[in-house]
């Protein structure tokens, strides 16, 4: 079981060629093989949302996705949401402004989910935001501030 396969990934607009075993998850490929550690592992079993990334613009759990599954598809991680040194994405700025995190470990996943939540048109009311952000657990309990941040970012993005 150490048959490696070569895969070509497009992450944050950059092409990467990687030799990994087919059983390597997208999450572990990002964190252990590509040094893109902004995407977090909170449970490795699809229950916490910390590993949320965008694949072809949709939010997915990278711990439940094999790296080989995303060949030929565009993957965006927290590192690709805004360019280093450039202006922050409106969701990122809103998270900072509203203190929508404490330890910060759930935060990249929350932000990736929030961007999707807004794009999907699910940020219409506080209750709707709560519902569509409930796949991302935050044990520090930043929820009320996450709701505020998503509400404000949605205004900026529309």
């Amino acid at each position: 079981m150490s048959n490696q396969t070569t895969i070509n990934l497009e992450i944050n607009g950059q092409a990467h060629t990687l030799a990994v075993e087919p059983r390597v998850t997208l999450l572990d490929a990002l964190r252990d093989h590509l040094e893109l550690t902004g995407t977090k592992k909170g449970c490795d079993q699809g229950q916490c949302g910390a590993c949320t990334v965008h694949v072809d613009g949709e939010r997915v759990l990278s711990c439940l996705t094999l790296a080989v599954q995303v060949e030929g598809r565009a993957v965006t991680t927290i590192e690709g949401l805004s360019d280093p040194g450039a202006e922050l994405h409106p969701v990122q700025s809103a998270f900072l402004e509203h203190d929508a995190f404490q330890c910060g470990y759930c935060t990249p996943g929350q932000i990736m989910s929030a961007v999707s939540c807004i794009r999907e048109g699910h940020a219409g009311s506080d209750d709707e935001i709560r519902e569509y952000m409930s796949g991302n657990l935050c044990r520090c309990g930043a929820y009320p501030h996450i709701v505020e941040a998503v509400r404000e970012a949605a205004k900026v993005m529309s």
Binding site: G38, I78, F95, L96, F101, G104, T107
Partner: peptide, 9 residues
């Protein structure tokens, strides 16, 4: 420490 946390750094 916020900017580091919201950018994945």
């Amino acid at each position: 420490d916020g900017p580091a946390k919201i950018t994945g750094a």
